[in-house]
Computed example of a mutant assay.
Amino acid sequence: MMALFGLVNTTSGGIVISLADALRVPAVANAIQLISEAVASLDVTVKRIEGDSEIDVPDHPVLTLLRDEANSFTTGFELIRQIVRDALMDDRGGMAWVNRVNGEPREIIRYRRSVLQYDIDLDTGERFYKIRNKPVAAGDVIHLLPPHERSPLSMAWNAIGVAVALDRHAGNLFARGARPSGALIIQRGMGEDAIKAVRASWREAHEGEDQGRTAFLYDGMTFEPFTFNSTDAQFLENRKFQIQEIGRAFNIPAPMLGDLERATWSNSEQKGREFLSYTLEPWLRGLEGALRRALFTDEERRNHVIRFDRDDLTRADLSTRATVINSLIASRTINPNEGRHWIGLPPREGGDEFANPNISEAKPDQQAGSPDDEDEHATE
């Protein structure tokens, strides 16, 4: 019954794990937190499409819900993070309901998945939403769907199951001595009471906090230590490999999950760009479309879009940014006020002119030459 309601899952190896067990795997928790918080941390804007240009609309009422408070008890950051988090963990994706008053969105509420549900038309794929079994308009629901019609967490259940098994084995190995270090070989003829006494004395002397004492063997007993096989010797390698497997399921580079074994300065920067292009960009595109569909009216959807500012993820250090901005201004690609806006400074008077500040143009009187200059040349 718990499996039917999605509370537990059984992997192909027969390991039964719950959602709470999966989130206790550091790589899984890190992957979900990394993607959801990276998306929620980006600045969101509303733009109006005019020809080939997108013009900012800073006073659009939708921004209040996405930037400040989605409702009286949820901030915009928390709402976006939760929607993306649900899409990463639930096959049904991340959903939230838009409460409209006189046709205008006034609040966005994220219900539990048992409250906000939907049915699918198997022929067309159309989704029919309901809250507590009462139908609601599809245009009032923000719905971020996962890829493959399954969440990355579901796609990674087998890899997560192996990681959980390895983690449990490590805990038992160090906490309770799950693998015996050796065996006592007892000669024939020893009675059951004597064997129990030997076992009790051995455990008292060599297990728990008293382990490591000098062993005394009697009545012809011998101690045979056990050796680790190849799987035991590569236990750490197996755990590292599971980090890579989980990273593949969430499409996250392994260095961003803490596997820095093969990370260098050059490839770390490249992995960061790949994280933006291949990991975050699909989620950002999907979320932009879901927000646009549910928050705009039919008329606004014709020429309005919602955009997340990717510049925060690609922002370089101040020295590099200053060099790039100065180069763009010198080539007349941007004006000084646009460059000041990139670094959070207010515009200044005369900053809208496209001019190269590195070239000082001569004044007309200096180009023609003054009479005093002509007299000096004549004297020479």
Rank of each mutant, 00 (worst) to 15 (best):
L122C: 00
R332H: 06
S114E: 04
A27Y: 09
L63K: 01
I329Y: 07
I49P: 01
L260N: 11
A156H: 12
D210H: 09
E300I: 01
F241A: 14
T11K: 04
T279S: 15
E37K: 13
W283M: 06
D375V: 12
W342G: 00
K240V: 07
S370E: 10
I108V: 14
P147A: 06
S230E: 15
V16L: 12
E380H: 04
K271A: 15
S114G: 01
E37T: 15
R168V: 13
T124Y: 08
E126T: 13
A197K: 14
R168P: 00
L66M: 07
I160L: 08
L7N: 02
M1T: 10
L328P: 09
R273E: 09
G247L: 06
E149L: 07
I195N: 00
I17P: 00
F77G: 00
T323S: 14
V57N: 06
G212V: 02
G258I: 14
S360R: 08
N229H: 12
F77S: 05
L153Q: 09
T379N: 11
R315C: 02
V162R: 11
D193K: 14
D91E: 10
F275E: 07
L4A: 09
N251W: 10
N133V: 02
A163L: 11
A183S: 12
Q82A: 13
E245S: 13
H60C: 08
D86S: 14
P180S: 06
E204N: 12
E78T: 11
P347M: 05
E361R: 07
T75Y: 11
L217K: 05
N337F: 04
M2K: 13
N229L: 13
P61L: 08
T227N: 14
T222N: 14
S268T: 15
L284R: 04
D373V: 10
R81H: 10
I325G: 05
L66I: 06
V162H: 12
V324S: 03
E224L: 12
L276K: 04
D365P: 03
K47Q: 14
I109Y: 03
E149R: 12
V16G: 00
V198M: 15
E376C: 00
D123F: 08
P105G: 09
